[in-house]
Design a protein around this nucleic acid. Structure first.
Length: 595
RNA sequence: GGUUCGGUAGCUCAGCUGGAUAGAGCGUCAUCCUUCUAAGAUGAGGGUCAUUGGUUCGAAUCCAAUCCGGAUCACCA
């Protein structure tokens, strides 16, 4: 149990015994004591002065005395300032905590809880390479999966590939028209980029044809509909749905190229999935559920035989679930897929990592599933994240401002190589170790950058000022880790053994500051899971690294004034390194032994 | 227009179940490498927490209204 919980518990007990009043633990506010006051944790008294009919000072005196007298293994003293009861925690509590954890590499990781959850993320289109927005999605999905695992869940990572539809046909038509049989191999290009170029070519040609038609006097609206290349794409979609062998074969061929490209990117950024779904295989799902919904009266049919659900009573609109031609729409597929996934894995929760432009869609999805009485319904959670924008606004492919994922990753690695070479601290590394280090630092910087802000909020990425390597960044944390490891290596080479200690000297403020932060780690991990927010981890490990950094520059570790202090500080360093490593892993990033 | 998310330092962001003098990083200025890695540390400067009103011992945090910005309100996915 965390110390804060213990303090709340002790306070509840104290109030119950002193005043025979039951105050629930969650009604007690315990904060870290401000540095200008004496004490470690503070109980805010105002909340219950009224109920207990005591002045804050009197209450503080009684409560403080009681707490100190009855919890000798927790508190050494207290003071009251303006309604705040500041409690001083006994050094031996911190020392005991450190003794029990400093060799635990899995400190903060909860045991298995037997629950299984699904995280769906990435969801690419096969007509475009991945861009910066996908990176935020992938990193978030991966990190949430790791955070849930650390909280004891079994996690199934899935991905749904959007591999069919008119947009895919556009790339295919353009390839037929303009490629002359070219392939990614013949052009020496990555498959997803290669196919993406034909998608762009389609749009260029489409625009040209519209203008051409407009010159001949046709209205813009009509021109958009009559442009031959668009008609060709629509025809191709029909042929695809009809199972035309030639179209299917071209589609398969081009998808193979795209997947090869995606796999390269996924490998580079460290994303993977336990199960991949393809929309081409799921787009017919959900039809039986439409029938079921009609029977249950959840859905209704209009004269043209299209099927709808009326959600106006829930503050939403009417929503179509089956077209008049009998084909299903996006939401119907999603309902069908939700059922399939549940039957396959029986996950208690299903987390969809999808941009916030689909907030409405997921609200409707969950509501329909609930109305249909599907067992998977209540577990649906949309992890909605904001767009990544440029200082000038949104990324626009038309204006060529889309930040390509592969380019960005390559650039980050190149920058980390450049900086590493400039510093010249790892000249003895072999080429393989160097490549590994550049990857670790470059990706660490990128992942940390995208995960350090609240997922719900949109964020700004300025390509002019490349991602920082100083301050609130991944490399800073990696650097602190490497620094600690360097000391630990030296100590182990000298044969110094950290034994358990019973401290006789008082803990110095900086020593205590680190232990206090370390003790918070497990509760941070559980907060991050409860709020589906990796930035909680990023902020925490950054603060820990910063505290350690001050500690490092103020106090000697390996050359401490006594063996006792040396041992204490080495233990602190070791547990800090372990927490930084675990924390970075929860963000999908790793930490180097040296840098 | 309806719904919804947001507006905190020059910039990027924390803080939001109400709590003590609102915090970081970047950028600016100053100091510190014959001493465990300077991708570092220390300090300075920088704020009407969009605006107005309300709730109360106390509001960046809660409520209401207003202003500004984003998303959405598709038989696209």
């Amino acid at each position: 149990m965390s110390l804060i919980s213990k303090i709340k518990q002790a306070t509840t007990a104290a109030i119950a015994n002193l005043y025979t009043v039951e105050i629930p633990e969650n009604a007690i506010l315990v904060n870290a004591t401000k540095p200008e006051f004496e004490g470690d944790y503070t109980v805010v008294l105002f909340a219950f002065v009224k109920q207990l009919k005591k002045s804050p000072d009197a209450l503080g005196q009684e409560l403080g005395s009681y707490l100190v007298a009855n919890n000798p293994s927790l508190f050494t003293g207290f003071n009251i300032i303006k309604g705040f009861l500041n409690l001083s925690v006994i050094d031996s509590f911190w020392i005991d905590f450190l003794q029990s954890q400093f060799t635990n590499d899995n400190y903060g990781i909860a045991p298995k809880n037997g629950e299984k959850v699904m995280v769906e993320y990435s969801s690419p289109n096969t007509n475009k390479p991945l861009h910066l927005g996908h990176l935020r999605n992938n990193f978030l999905g991966w990190s949430i999966a790791e955070i849930l695992k650390a909280n004891g869940y079994d996690v199934v990572k899935t991905c749904i590939v959007n591999d069919r539809g008119i947009h895919i046909c556009k790339s295919m038509v353009a390839w037929q028209l303009f490629a002359n049989g070219a392939t990614p191999e013949s052009e020496g290009k990555k498959g997803d980029h290669f196919v993406g170029e034909y998608y762009v070519k389609f749009n260029d040609e489409y625009k040209r044809q519209i203008e051409e038609l407009a010159v001949s006097g046709i209205t813009k609206d009509l021109a958009e509909k009559k442009a031959p290349i668009m008609l060709a794409a629509q025809k191709m979609l029909q042929d695809w749905e009809a199972g035309d062998a030639e179209v299917i074969s071209l589609w398969e061929r081009m998808n193979t190229w795209v997947y090869a490209g995606f796999n390269t990117t996924y490998k580079a950024i460290g994303s993977d999935f336990d199960r991949t779904y393809y929309e081409s295989q799921t787009y017919l799902l959900g039809k039986d559920l439409v029938e079921k919904g009609l029977e249950k009266g959840v859905f209704y049919q209009k004269e043209d035989s299209s099927v709808w659900i009326d959600l106006t009573a829930d503050g939403l609109d009417e929503k179509i679930v089956r077209r008049k031609d009998g084909t299903s729409v996006y939401i119907t597929q999603d309902i069908g897929l939700a059922v399939d996934k549940y039957e396959e894995y029986h996950c208690s929760k299903s987390i969809y990592v999808v941009g916030d432009e689909q907030n409405y869609h997921f609200k409707v999805l969950k509501l329909i599933c609930q109305k249909l009485g599907l067992p998977s319904a209540d577990g649906i959670f949309h992890l909605s994240y904001g767009m990544v924008e440029l200082p000038t606004g949104k990324m626009k492919s038309r204006e060529g401002t889309v930040v390509d994922a592969d380019d960005l990753v390559a650039e980050m690695i190149a920058i980390s190589q450049h900086k590493t070479e400039e510093l010249g601290k790892v000249k003895d590394f072999n080429p393989e170790e160097l490549t590994g280090l550049y990857n670790t630092i470059g990706l660490g910087a990128l992942k940390f950058f995208l995960l350090r802000v609240d997922p719900k909020k949109k964020m700004v990425f300025n390509p002019e000022e490349s991602i920082e390597f100083q301050g609130f960044t991944g490399p800073f944390i990696q650097f602190i880790h490497a620094r600690i490891k360097s000391i630990l290596r030296k100590m182990s080479a000298e044969g110094f053994v950290m034994e358990s200690i019973a401290l006789t000297d008082k803990l110095l403020p900086l020593e205590k500051a680190i232990i206090v932060e370390l003790e918070l780690f497990p509760s941070i991990i559980s907060d991050a899971a409860n709020e589906y927010d990796p930035s909680k981890i990023a902020i925490y490990i950054y603060n820990l690294a910063k505290t350690f950094s001050s500690f490092y520059s103020e106090l000697k570790i390996a050359n401490a004034e006594s063996d006792e202090k040396k041992t204490l500080r080495l233990q602190l360093a070791q547990l800090t390194a372990s927490v930084l490593k675990t924390g970075m892993q929860l963000l999908g990033a790793s930490v180097p032994e040296r840098m």
